[in-house]
Design a binder for these strands. Structure first.
Lengths: 145, 145
DNA sequence: TTGCCGCTTGACACCGGTGTCAAGGTCAAG
DNA sequence: CTTGACCTTGACACCGGTGTCAAGCGGCAA
């Protein structure tokens, strides 16, 4: 058996980074990054190893969800204390603001992409027309030859 | 008078990079980048200065339009010969493919953003519900005190 | 002891369009 | 000649989440 037996030597609900990575499906690199960005707290064993309690799994899951919505780590850092049940209403109001701003930003981006799509469609139309013109010219040249 | 008078010393329709930048509103840095990426051709004066003919203004304009549609420089490089009237139909068919793929990609991105927005909205809803719960709990605690 | 795995920190790479700086050449105007 | 505008190439920085490698320590198993 590998290192798994060591798990029993510590409080059952504390794990190290590899274990958390396994449970969440997120690489250790990324977990350290989240800590560096202030999204995820870790205790330290005497030997310097990071330790996490069981809640960390939920926290990481929430972080991934929020990242998937397009929020960046700064926004998530502002959001997480509330999402985890922080000091109550005030941060929640703030967090709602963050979320609403992000939704507005997403709406803007969607509009922007629609515009791009329209521009591209216009471009395609122009090309088709030009091709048709070219073909017509070629046909005329062929007939006159 | 500045260097403008030198313009008369060369064929009237050839300009240098600064002039092209002024006419297109695009920085010289960016023009050199486009050349490096194979989007824009430039001749060279004996002293090594880039020279452009009047058509370059249109080319740059087209490049900017295509960039604004979200195409990257590689795609634009594949697209431009046709957009400028290349060897005829075959490249145009190819170009149309490029454009269509990009439109499909844009559609995907739009769908992705919509999904993100929905996820975020769900998140906001969860937070609102939790807040409502917290408030209810607080009210109960207050009443029982 | 040695082997091996897991952990640590630190650093570079990616993408892609653009800003910006450095060091130096060209040439007209004064 | 100097000044100064304009040109050249080359290189680093940005953003942001992640991969990946290096060098080194901790600790269990054989």
């Amino acid at each position: 058996m590998g290192h798994g037996s060591r798990t029993g030597a510590r409080p059952a609900d504390r794990m190290r980074i590899g274990e958390l990575a396994r449970r969440t499906g997120v690489s250790t690199r990324v977990l350290r990054y989240y800590e560096q960005r202030g999204l995820l707290c870790a205790g330290r064993d005497p030997n310097g190893y990071r330790t996490y309690d069981a809640d960390a799994v939920d926290t990481v899951t929430r972080i991934r969800e929020l990242l998937a919505t397009g929020l960046n780590t700064d926004a998530i850092r502002a959001l997480l204390p509330c999402a985890q049940g922080g000091p109550g209403l005030t941060p929640c109001a703030f967090s709602c603001g963050v979320v609403e701003r992000q939704m507005a930003r997403l709406d803007d981006e969607i509009a922007e992409l629609r515009q791009r799509r329209a521009a591209l469609a216009a471009y395609a139309r122009t090309m088709r027309e030009r091709r048709a013109q070219d073909e017509a010219l070629a046909a005329m040249a062929l007939r006159s030859a």
